[in-house]
Simulated scan of single mutants.
Amino acid sequence: MYYYYSPPIILLVAGLLASLTSGLAFDATLKMSVREWSKNKSTRTLAQARGLALLLPFLGICGGICFFLAAGLQIFGFPATLSLGIALPLTLLSGGLVWFQLGRVLQQIEEGGSAALDLDSFT
């Protein structure tokens, strides 16, 4: 008698949808923060705009990606604990690096405006 393993496709789709909807909220919050900062040029630095309002959607993106990766590994036959053991550190590391880079980009925008992000200078 064989046991047929049913892959967690619902978890894969749920992780993808969670990260997409959180990404839309992150996009709207970031645009609103930058627009408010550029309009008012307040004493609050742009790097401080990375507060709780921006952190929550970002954590939603990271959580959705973690579930998506873990479910994707389970579809290929990895056990659930190993899949989560691979997906969690990968998500934490890449999410931390993206959050750090976002702070640096916001600091560059604050110091030199949008012209500070000259992407053609990297060629």
Rank of each mutant, 00 (worst) to 15 (best):
T43E: 11
T43N: 10
R44I: 15
R44T: 14
R44H: 06
R44P: 01
T45G: 14
A47M: 07
Q48I: 00
Q48E: 14
A49C: 11
A49T: 12
R50I: 03
G51T: 00
G51I: 00
G51A: 06
L52V: 07
L52A: 07
L52S: 04
A53I: 04
A53M: 09
A53G: 10
A53N: 04
A53V: 08
A53L: 12
L54Q: 08
L55A: 13
L55C: 02
L55V: 05
L56H: 00
L56T: 05
L56Q: 01
P57E: 04
P57Y: 04
F58T: 05
F58Q: 07
F58A: 14
F58L: 12
L59Y: 01
L59W: 02
L59A: 13
G60W: 06
G60V: 11
G60K: 08
I61G: 10
I61S: 10
I61C: 12
I61R: 07
I61E: 05
C62V: 15
C62L: 14
C62T: 14
G63C: 14
G63L: 14
G64E: 10
I65A: 15
I65K: 13
I65D: 09
C66D: 11
C66I: 09
C66F: 10
F67Q: 13
F67C: 15
F67I: 11
F67E: 09
F68Q: 15
L69C: 11
A70D: 10
A70R: 12
G72I: 09
G72Q: 09
G72M: 12
G72C: 09
G72E: 08
L73V: 12
L73Q: 08
L73K: 05
L73C: 11
L73T: 10
I75N: 03
I75V: 15
I75S: 02
I75K: 03
F76A: 15
F76M: 15
F76P: 01
G77H: 09
G77F: 03
G77A: 05
G77W: 05
G77T: 06
G77C: 06
F78I: 15
F78G: 02
F78A: 15
P79R: 09
P79G: 12
P79S: 15
A80H: 01
A80N: 03
A80D: 04
T81I: 11
T81R: 09
L82M: 13
L82I: 12
L82A: 14
S83W: 02
S83E: 07
S83P: 06
L84M: 13
L84N: 05
L84Q: 05
G85F: 03
G85Y: 05
G85C: 04
G85N: 12
I86H: 00
I86E: 00
A87W: 02
A87C: 07
A87Q: 08
A87L: 09
A87F: 04
L88T: 15
L88Y: 02
L88D: 00
L88P: 02
L88N: 00
P89G: 12
P89L: 13
L90P: 00
L90I: 06
T91L: 04
T91W: 04
L92Y: 00
L92P: 03
L93E: 00
L93F: 10
L93D: 00
S94P: 02
G95D: 05
G95T: 08
G95W: 04
G95F: 05
G95Y: 03
G96V: 07
G96K: 10
G96P: 10
